[in-house]
Amino acid sequence: MKKIIVEGLKYKYPLADSLALNDVTFDIKQGEFIGIIGKNLAGKSTLCQALVGLVPHFYKGAYGGKVIVDGLEVKNHSIADLSLKVGMVFQNPFTQVTGSKTTVYEEIAFGLENIGIPRTEIIERIDSVLDLLNIEQVKDHNPFDLSGGQMQRMAIASIIAMKPDILVLDEPTSQLDPAGSEEVFQAIQSLSKQGITVILAEHKMEKIAQYCDRVLLLNNGKVVDFDTPGKIFSREDLEGYGLTAPVYTRVCKALGVKKAGTDEYPVTLEEAERVLRGDGA
């Protein structure tokens, strides 16, 4: 089942000279884990925001083409309506804290209160997301007192509590230390396993290779390719788009060893280990 359909999407920010997204077309199936890669200003954030309606409703600007998320055409629905279908987590954990709540528990309730969920259900939902993202132990802390990793998991919990089927994340770990990033990726993966469709923009290619089913490669607002991590990272022209493949792929490329029976290079630590062991035998 197609969960997201993007057709000929064009978008220009107000005051900008050039298109931020230029004729973007792709679709995503229910339950897929999709990575978006591309150098800075390639259009990753804009595309993420187009999926939740911030583009065009928040920024205005010139908009063409179609984005259909779970049956709703983004252009014709408010951000609040869309938020029931698709949630978004941003880069900076700090600015996602509402600032109007004094505990993590209340913070997560914020969105649920806004969309009018009955009280008893609010409590059930909060208890379940606290457990899901493993932040139960800090539920009574002030949101601003959390570590970056905890704060970002709280942000995800706040979104997940609204029960969207689709989760969009824009470089959610760029401000976190490796341990914090790992916590967040583990949490996203467990959501993905529960059937939530995940779309993740990220610079850390090793993580993309490890977690994503398919990868969307953007350059100058256009889709260059949309394929499995193996196919994408085996491309010879990645550097031309300002990207480097995961270190495992680079080393195997240099040694000229591909995955058995395919035209692809390994993209994860495990794959590289397997291939390189086999190679020596």
Partner: peptide, 15 residues
């Protein structure tokens, strides 16, 4: 210290 070695270091070690 919750720090991981670089990817290439880990690969070499595993091999």
């Amino acid at each position: 210290a919750c720090v991981e070695a670089p990817g290439i270091t880990k690969l070499a070690e595993r091999l």
